[in-house]
Amino acid sequence: MFETISNFIAAFLTLSIFSFLYKDNPFYKFAEALLVGVSMGYAIPLVYESVFIPYVYTPIFLSHKFIIIIPALLGSLYIFRFSKNLGWLSRYPIVFGMSIIGMSIPMSINSYVLVQMRSAMLPIDGINSALIFIGTVTILLYFFFSKAHKGIYGKVTNVGIWFMMIGFGASFGYTVMARVSLLIGRIQFLLGDWLGLVK
């Protein structure tokens, strides 16, 4: 009985979301508003258990590392973000969190630029590796806007556009398949778990 009621609620909310395919309506608006609230409400206890307890409560109250009171007080300054007079206090927790980007500079240069360039510079031993090299170089040239895309240079950057279109098409295809897979999951739930028409 409890499972039937649970399935009925889940099915009602699923159909409320799908009702947007017809047009915007009160059922969709209700489900949309509920989704926002429940998603935020779901995150609060998770953050409390997985971040606040291990990194604030346990060090201060169980491990007696009282120095952690300082970052905890700094963190509580976030609440002044919406204050007109004391809003500047919220800058302190932000800058402490943001200063970690100092570490991200060498990391992003290494993982996004150097590793990718090294992979692109491997010996060209076949048609495929040659195509990958040509594609990478022509796309990078396309994003170089200090030179007008005219003449031979324009033709080279055009090759980059074609490579990008194929890449975007592949990403698009993958995204469509992921969404269709979710759709199949919801239809299986409606026809199987809820209505019992499919086993």
Binding site: V47, Y55, P59, I70, G97
Partner: peptide, 13 residues
């Protein structure tokens, strides 16, 4: 450890 102790308070925002 400091940054981790500051981060949960961002949820309050």
């Amino acid at each position: 450890d400091w940054v981790k102790a500051i981060s949960p308070f961002a949820v309050s925002l």
